[in-house]
């Protein structure tokens, strides 16, 4: 496994990635998480999460679309997608208002990658889902309520 890591390390491009992989290979696992935005993922409320992500203010935008079911029968697997027609989108994040930690996932999109990602998330209860999109340095939001029949966060 370590050999594979070395290969990736050698072929890696971009300072950020190199830094990340170096952290993965050389520093102990606990410390390798340094690049992961712990504050943002630990934040409980929407406001705290946005603060931890360095978002000063957001604008609601019709050019950001959140896709997902209106009703999710199983909260453990809720398909959610974010798409945007805004120019120069560099970051996309999915936030779930009523989950224990609002931030579900964030994506950094280099130039050439389209603002269109789909994934699956867990939802503890019926909640609004927020899509946060960074375009030309400004933050835009869109929201959608998803009703959950069976929660996916508890035990």
């Amino acid at each position: 496994m370590n050999n594979q890591r070395r290969t990736v390390l050698k072929s890696g491009s971009g300072a950020a990635l190199l830094g990340m992989l170096a952290a993965a290979g050389i520093i102990t696992p606990g410390m390798a998480l340094a690049d992961w935005n712990k504050a943002a993922f630990d934040a409980k409320s929407m406001a705290d999460t946005l603060k931890a992500l360095g978002v000063a203010g957001t604008t609601d935008s019709k050019d950001v679309q959140v896709t997902g079911p209106d009703i999710a029968e199983n909260g453990a697997v809720v398909p959610v997608g974010v798409a945007s027609t805004l120019p120069n989108v560099t970051m996309v994040a999915i936030l779930i208002e009523k989950n224990p930690n609002a931030l579900a996932a964030s994506f950094v999109l280099p130039e050439g990658t389209e603002a269109n990602v789909q994934t699956r998330v867990k939802m503890g209860q019926t909640s609004n889902i927020y899509a946060l999109v960074k375009s030309d340095g400004k933050f835009f939001m869109a929201t959608k309520e998803i009703k959950v029949t069976l929660g996916g966060c508890g035990g």
Partner: peptide
């Protein structure tokens, strides 16, 4: 060699 997507996941990804 070109990074096309970097994702940070939290525990609420399925």
């Amino acid at each position: 060699d070109k990074v096309v997507l970097t994702s940070d996941f939290g525990p609420s990804v399925s």
